[in-house]
């Protein structure tokens, strides 16, 4: 084959045209643009927040697309083409240096996000996300509204729930420590409330609990458990001062349940995904022993001792 300029030019350009038609134009013209069940249009503020998201390269660390085999953030709704019909540009992301955000709306209340944007280490001590305090409060608010809309109608339902419980938690907090502790215990289902920590306190378990506390809780509850971690100024109701719980019959079961499930409406997140059962019991016992100064570990009723217990 003799490669003349004409052969090269005509050859490459017609190939490119043909291939572009097949793999770009054809899908473009045949794709289904029906909205998915959760889709809704964004408000003006949410759209402005999305712009801040794009300008600051959040997309290089955060995907917005859940796969069938994911476990972490947002894993309960697998992405559908109809979720993206208003996205220009689409912000799928190609890397997860941070978590997937496609269902982030309502995952936390606004105050958690604001503290997190000011400095991610405040709410997530081992985070490597850069701080965004320089955006200033106005833009952080706008950005937060966008984040709270991720997941569309599902996000709206979650936000509704967050707002309802935010009101309840503020009422309880403002009614004083007694009322707050009572409220905190009462939102835990009956069965859990009467459940002591079934495992014994050991030196090793306290040490493990300490490590977990450092990596997950210290930014809010503070190094001495008084609720004065660096996130405290941005969070309301503020992180709990554990010493207030002394003498209020807080069972291991209450602490376990609150850690597992979080306290919706407050900044207190759920740790069910991050921590396995043993870790939740042990960090719970750690705060009970060191900060509340009162632990019901290994008290009756505790069932049969597990095989590994000393």
């Amino acid at each position: 084959m003799r490669m003349t300029p004409a052969v090269i030019l005509v050859g490459i350009l017609s190939l490119l045209a043909a291939i572009t038609l097949t793999v770009v134009y054809w899908p473009y013209s045949t794709i289904d643009r029906t909205p998915s069940d959760i889709f809704r249009q964004r408000t003006v503020v949410e759209a402005a927040g999305r712009k801040i998201y794009l300008e600051n390269g959040c997309v290089y660390c955060h995907s917005q697309s859940i796969r069938a085999f994911d476990w972490g953030h947002g894993a309960d709704r697998i992405a559908q083409a109809g979720d993206y019909i208003a996205d220009e540009p689409i912000a799928l992301g190609s890397q997860r240096t941070g978590v997937d955000l496609s269902q982030e709306g309502g995952e936390h209340p606004d105050d958690w996000h604001i503290a997190h944007f000011i400095n991610p280490r405040y709410t997530r001590p081992s985070s490597i996300m850069p701080p965004f305090e320089w955006l200033g409060m106005a833009r952080i608010d706008t950005l937060t509204q966008y984040i709270q809309s991720l997941g569309f109608k599902n996000a709206d339902i979650r936000m509704e729930r967050q707002r309802y419980w935010k009101n309840e938690s503020i009422k309880a907090y403002e009614a004083g420590p007694d009322a707050n502790a009572k409220w905190l215990a009462e939102i835990v289902p009956e069965g859990w409330r009467n459940l002591p920590n079934p495992y014994p306190t050991t030196k090793a378990s306290l040490q493990r609990g300490h490590v977990i506390y450092q990596k997950f809780c210290i930014g809010c509850h503070g190094p001495i458990g008084d609720g004065m971690g660096p996130a405290q100024p941005w969070i309301y109701p503020p992180p709990l001062n554990f010493t207030l719980l002394k003498g209020r019959e807080i069972s291991g079961g209450i602490i376990y349940y609150q850690l597992m499930n979080g306290i919706t409406g407050t900044a207190m997140p759920y740790f069910k995904r991050d921590l396995e059962s043993q870790k939740i019991w042990e960090v719970g016992d750690y705060i009970a022993v060191y900060f509340i100064n009162q632990s019901d570990a290994n008290q009756d009723p505790r069932g049969i001792d597990a095989a590994w217990e000393p």
């Binding site: 083409a81 993206y84 019909i85 996205d87």
Partner: peptide, 8 residues
């Protein structure tokens, strides 16, 4: 573009 075609 808008949506999935943009990704493609």
């Amino acid at each position: 573009l808008v949506g999935i075609p943009d990704a493609i």
